[in-house]
């Protein structure tokens, strides 16, 4: 039953031809018996996925389960993957992580992308992680823009990490000004997004230090803060900030500004 690659390759090519969308989930499993694969098929029968047909394929040698759901975009596929993970975890069949993607992706052909996905899941470690396959970062990790996030609010950090990584940036997170400065030295990012209210070193002190750091000519600073006073805006720009965004913010706008700054 090692028919995962040919079957999915064929299906994807057909989809591409008919210009219909689908989502693919690859799961690293334990050794599945024929019965358990059948059981999985049964339990995820189409009536629950409400639209589109679901295909299952299992690669015995690589211990990979592939699931393809027709007419699912990435969000649906992601949501579906949550269920798959829970299911496999409960029946103790999960051995590694999950990789998800939706097709057709923009540029390359679906078939080729799928082959790269197969490559990537082999290198994926961890257990039970759900990772969104990004065609960009597998290709050119060197050229990715690196963003350092400095914020004391873990919710901001968590969200922006997820959001900006999906947009193809490489993101590192720091919780306070001191931590931020250390990561800045180690990593020399292309862009820093920082709050002004930070423990230990505040945003101004951090900007001051970045300004006096040797290699700083390259990195841009965006301030993302609750402070809405004109004085703060002025002072931030005086210290070399390239942009000033107040919370609550629109992530779309933030990303647009970031993109403008690094281009």
């Amino acid at each position: 039953m090692s028919n995962l690659v040919p079957v999915f390759y064929q299906l994807l090519t057909n989809m591409e031809a008919s210009q219909s969308a689908c989502g693919v989930i690859l799961v690293a499993c334990k050794n599945l018996s024929k019965e358990s694969v059948e059981a999985i098929k049964r339990d995820f029968s189409p009536k629950e996925t409400d639209s589109g047909e679901t295909h299952f394929a299992y690669d015995k040698t690589k211990n990979l389960l592939g699931i393809m759901v027709e007419q699912h975009n990435l969000a649906d596929t992601h949501f579906f993957a949550l269920r798959v993970k829970d299911y496999l975890q409960e029946s103790q069949l999960l051995s590694g992580s999950l990789l998800i993607a939706s097709f057709p992706e923009s540029s390359a052909s679906s078939g080729q992308l799928f082959m790269r996905m197969m490559q990537e899941i082999k290198d994926l470690d961890g257990y039970g992680e759900i990772k969104i396959y990004d065609q960009r970062n597998s290709a050119d990790a060197e050229e990715q823009t690196r963003i350092l996030l400095v914020n004391h609010d873990e919710h901001v950090n968590e969200f922006l990490r997820i959001y900006l990584e999906r947009k193809g940036y490489m993101v590192t997170v720091a919780n306070d000004g001191m931590d931020g400065m250390e990561k800045y030295r180690e990593w020399s990012p292309d862009l820093v997004i920082t709050d002004l209210n930070l423990p230990i070193l505040n945003g101004y002190q951090l900007m001051e230090k970045i300004k006096h750091h040797e290699a700083s000519a390259m990195s841009k600073i965006v301030v993302l803060t609750d402070k809405r006073l004109e004085e703060d805006v002025q002072k931030s720009f005086a210290l070399g900030a390239a942009d000033y965004i107040t919370k609550p913010f629109s992530p779309i706008e933030l990303e647009a500004r970031v993109r403008r700054l690094i281009s």
Partner: peptide
Amino acid sequence: FQSLSGSR
């Protein structure tokens, strides 16, 4: 309070 700490 985070938001208030930035208020005019």
